[in-house]
Each structure stands twice: as structure tokens, then as C-alpha cells.
Simulated assay, not measured.
Amino acid sequence: MRKTAQRLLTEYGLAAVVVYFAIFFAVLFGAWAAIGAGWKPTGALANVGAFTAAYLFTKVTQPVRIAATVVLAPLAAKLWERITGRRPGAIAAAPTTDEPRA
């Protein structure tokens, strides 16, 4: 999975990051709203519980979100290029060697 993320960042740059976080926050706040609509908590502590449940749901759906990012990042990069006339900037991938840093 790490190689897939590095390839996405190298090839599609900022477009892949934006797509991933857009999906992440859409799922998180969508789940939070759905939980809030079906369950009417009382007090501030109950609201924190609803958000925690939404976060856990978001973590469970992570493989699906990553797959969606792999599919949608190339489309987002093409759209970005069409709108701006330039490719989204590539993000430098972390070093892949396991050598200790000095």
C-alpha cells in the first residue's frame, strides 16, 4: 500500500492529496451527520461520542477510500491540467532506504 501511495504522490502530486482528504472529510462528516440524524444525543459528552463513532466508521472504510483515491486521482489531475493548463505539482516521496539518518 505504501508503494501505491508513493506512486500516486509522484505521478499526480497535490491532486492525489486533495482527492484523498476530500473523500476522508466527506465520509467523516457524512457519518457524523447520519449518526446525529438517527440518534439524538444529549449534552456535550454525547456529541463527542457521536463524532468518535463517525471517526471509527471512517477508519473502517479506509481501504475503500484508498481504492477510490487510486481511481479518482488521475481524473482529478487531468481536470486540474485542463483547467489550469499545467500539471499538479509532484510531492517528493519519502526515502525508501532503511538506512539510519545522520
Rank of each mutant, 00 (worst) to 15 (best):
A31V: 09
T84I: 04
P41W: 11
Q62R: 11
Y12C: 00
L75W: 10
A67N: 07
L72V: 06
A67H: 01
K59S: 12
K3N: 11
Q6P: 06
A46V: 04
R101F: 15
P88D: 01
L8S: 00
A53W: 10
I66M: 07
T69G: 00
V64S: 05
L72I: 05
P74H: 03
T52I: 12
W80P: 00
A54Q: 06
A93T: 13
F29P: 03
G38K: 09
E81Y: 05
Q62A: 13
A5T: 03
T42A: 14
A90E: 09
G49C: 09
G13H: 00
A53P: 09
V17Q: 01
T52A: 15
T61Y: 04
I35W: 09
F57G: 09
L45V: 10
V27S: 06
A31H: 00
K40H: 15
R7M: 06
A31R: 03
A15T: 04
R82P: 05
D98S: 14
A92K: 13
I83C: 05
L9A: 00
D98E: 13
I35T: 07
L75Y: 05
Q6T: 08
D98K: 12
I83Q: 00
A22F: 05
E99S: 14
L28T: 05
G43E: 04
Y12L: 03
Y55P: 03
P74I: 06
L14C: 02
A46W: 06
A50L: 14
G49I: 10
V48M: 11
A22M: 01
Y20G: 02
G30Q: 08
R101S: 15
P100T: 11
G13W: 06
W39P: 04
V71I: 13
R87D: 10
W32C: 07
A90L: 00
T69K: 03
P95V: 13
A93Q: 10
E81H: 09
F51C: 07
L56R: 09
E81N: 10
P41T: 14
Q6G: 02
T58S: 05
M1K: 09
I91M: 02
L8K: 05
L72S: 01
V18I: 11
V71W: 11
V48C: 03
A34V: 08
A33H: 10
Y20T: 04
V60Y: 06
T58G: 00
A5P: 06
Y20V: 01
Y55N: 10
R101P: 11
A16C: 03
D98N: 15
A50W: 07
R87T: 12
F57M: 13
A102Q: 14
L79N: 08
V60M: 08
V70T: 04
K40F: 11
D98T: 13
K78H: 07
A93C: 09
L75R: 11
V64D: 01
V17G: 01
T10V: 08
E11R: 12
G43S: 08
A54N: 01
A26N: 07
T52E: 09
A34W: 10
A53E: 05
A93D: 09
L79D: 01
